[in-house]
Design a protein around this nucleic acid. Structure first.
Lengths: 192, 192
DNA sequence: AAAAACTATTGATCTATATCAACAAAATTC
DNA sequence: GAATTTTGTTGATATAGATCAATAGTTTTT
């Protein structure tokens, strides 16, 4: 039931039988149909969510009602609203399944116990955050200095394996470009 | 000599006398004159740098030769190139002192030892990264949905204490707006 | 204290990209 | 399988903000 997640963990850190039992004891499986929400704006988020199957998007709606996708999470990635998780505030993000999905939920307190109890997990988690930091940093830099076309090219370079599972206008939203502009970019690119 | 840093640490985690001795044994003080570089593009960064006095900026130069400031680090903040640190690649960032500064350097290996050796430090460091993540996330969202004026207002709200130590065109660079536009924004704001 | 470098302002012009709008193909739902 | 929704394209137009350029005050350097 939680095999995907256990395999993921074992590829990152060493687990004893007891560790595995402990992890499994705090996991909860949540199945989502396409278009179903894992989190809606306004609710408080206190889970760590591992996508074991499917694909999920995390997005936010701005003052003008426009959606801005922050992240796509396919299998073996995480999803969540880190701000709400950290500060207990109502979420500004929505998380919605783009495909029928299976999500493993671990409650905040349980997850923190795992980090302390399993040797190396705290360090691995810190490392994961460091790498995320670098990715976000680069996205900020792209936002300030790349053209729309460059941003799109960077996206397909960074996520080649999921592009055909995501509608084009959502890629536009992720990279911060209007859907029309992205359509024109792709059109020009094929002409060359 | 490292008092500022020890005080900072003690405000976050509990330190024994031995812990303090261990920390001090791996600290190195580096004094910077205004305009002096702590890191230059192309060099590899393998420190954790705590600003104990002064102010430092971390910036990157894009393909067109334009500077983009990623971060200002005043007293009691950190500075560094996390990408270079993590992957050992030549830095894309420059770190330059905006004022005469004192920086405490801890080499990568030493720092990792501290995280393991001092109870709670690993967890505190993870928490620090989580909060940074949230900040960067918000900057990405602003980049995609705020006007130039809103971005500037957000900056003065977030960093009210350092605005008068930073030239206006550098604030413009940080928020991702041209210096002329920022000048006009401020002008309009005062008219109201 | 003169020269040089840095900083901020203001005006004129340009441009990348957004917005508005209409249409059609594809996918999904009933 | 008809109706509805989603998705992508293309054209016309608008606009926020960039760029270019000139000026001047301020700070730093020599």
């Amino acid at each position: 039931m939680f095999d995907n997640f256990i395999n993921y963990l074992q590829s990152k850190i060493t687990l004893t039988r007891e560790d595995i039992a402990m992890v499994e004891s705090v996991c909860r499986l949540k199945k989502l149909r396409r278009r179903q929400y894992l989190l809606q704006e306004g609710d408080v988020w206190h889970y760590n969510a591992f996508v074991s199957k499917g694909l999920v998007r995390t997005y936010r709606v701005d003052d003008k009602g426009v959606e801005h996708i922050f992240q796509f999470s396919p299998e073996n990635w995480w999803a969540g609203d880190r701000h709400s998780y950290l500060y207990g505030d109502p979420a500004k993000f929505n998380i919605e399944a783009l495909e029928d999905s299976e999500i493993i939920l671990i409650a905040k307190g349980d997850f923190e116990n795992l980090l302390e109890a399993i040797p190396g997990y705290n360090t691995f988690q810190r490392n994961l955050l460091e790498r995320s930091f670098v990715v976000l940093q680069h996205r900020i830099h792209m936002g300030n200095s790349y053209t729309a076309e460059e941003k799109y090219n960077e996206f397909i370079k960074a996520y080649p394996n999921i592009i055909n599972r995501i509608p084009q206008h959502m890629i536009a939203s992720f990279v911060g470009v209007s859907p029309e502009t992205l359509s024109r970019i792709r059109n020009n690119a094929t002409k060359k």
